[in-house]
Design a protein around this nucleic acid. Sequence first.
DNA 1: ATGACCCCCCTGGGGGGA
Length: 258
Amino acid sequence: MKIASWNVNSIKARLANATDWVREARPDVLLLQEIKCQDADFPVLEFQSLGYQVHAHGQKSYNGVAVLSREKPDAVRTRLAGDDADEQSRYIEADFGGVTVCGLYLPNGNPRPGEKYDYKLGWMRRLQARAAELLAEERPFLMAGDYNVCPLDVDVFDPIGFAEDALCWPDSRRAFRSLLNLGLTEAWRALHPTKVDYTFWDYQAGAWPKNNGLRIDHFLLSPQLADRLVSCEIDRNPRGREKASDHTPIICEIAAAA
DNA sequence: ATGACCCCCCTGGGGGGA
């Protein structure tokens, strides 16, 4: 099972880029973040014609997540429990056989300190509560998406310049580690212990040609899926194309259940 | 890490991203 995650920074602006990449990569499941449209405005037909089902959880202008899949999911759930007043579309889950695939767009949290940072930490606590529930059910699952956290300094092109940033601040890293310490495996780092690579390059200041990137898009696997982890790779190619998103896809392959 | 971008709103510029 090949699962990909990509923050597309508007699915409408990225339609040609995204469909080109799907044709090449043919993931079984594609998790999208920042679709930036309401569900009715998602270009469903274009992906259906490529053989994908679309389940979008969007909102006007901002945020928005989606699950695209070649197989029909058994169930789809949206929203993260723990804050009924939270109107931001940032979370979706879909069940495929015995595996639950969770797609997420974690709040950026800047400026920090402030209410946006408090929202980020609260959201991370809610995500951790959901992970704990799925672990208690002993359900094989993965949580993938734009975490807006650089786990270590090696995941940042300029750790000193970013030390105060919400993506790197100790409370953000602590909350990320706390999630891992439930017993989850960060797939890319597990397979590439000393590698330096990124999933995001700012549009500004020549960040892409200078390789001034951040590694903020991650796959976290439950123990059952960590045992079946085959590969996890970042595909830089889409970032170098015309009308690119500022993020590039990350792809994780999970072996069939024994 | 903002001089330097891009996308959203829907037209003149503000909000947001990371």
